[in-house]
């Protein structure tokens, strides 16, 4: 199960990077980045998974006493929660900057923006 999730994550990273590098339209590049970051999150969650264990939430099904042997690693999950939120903030920023660039040049084609090119 974790193998499939991890493989999916790696494939999503590759798809996202491919999309971000080959597309010239900035909106499509942003979609590529979002797909790649989803893949990274998926890989991180898959790394924390352990066979036969359950989510790190203690209740009647998982008593406190045998939590150590019954739950999966909570740290990757906390890390991914942070990563998702930051990823959303970065995406919103990219969209706002894309809007400003569109207003200045009237195009979304990244190859038309040559000011910082050397």
């Amino acid at each position: 199960m974790a193998d499939i999730a991890m493989a999916t994550g790696f494939i999503l990273i590759l798809i996202g990077i491919f999309g971000a590098l080959t597309n010239r339209n900035m909106l499509r590049m942003i979609v590529g980045f979002v797909i790649a970051s989803t893949g990274v999150n998926l890989v991180m969650v898959a790394v924390g998974y352990m066979r036969g264990r359950t989510a790190p939430i203690l209740d009647d099904a998982v008593p406190v006493a045998d939590a150590v042997t019954r739950i999966i690693d909570p740290l990757p999950q906390a890390l991914v929660l942070t990563a998702i939120v930051i990823g959303l903030g970065v995406t919103a920023l990219m969209l706002a900057f894309t809007y400003r660039l569109f207003v200045t040049k009237g195009t979304l084609d990244i190859s038309k923006f040559r000011e910082l090119k050397w």
């Binding site: 352990m50 790190p56 939430i57 203690l58 209740d59 406190v64 939590a67 150590v68 042997t69 739950i71 690693d73 909570p74 740290l75 999950q77 906390a78 929660l81």
Partner: peptide
Amino acid sequence: DSELNQVGRYYASHTAQDLGAANIV
């Protein structure tokens, strides 16, 4: 991993009595 690493084990065993939260994350 077949068992929790040191940090994970600390969180799993100490969260309930130290902080009283059921959701370790």
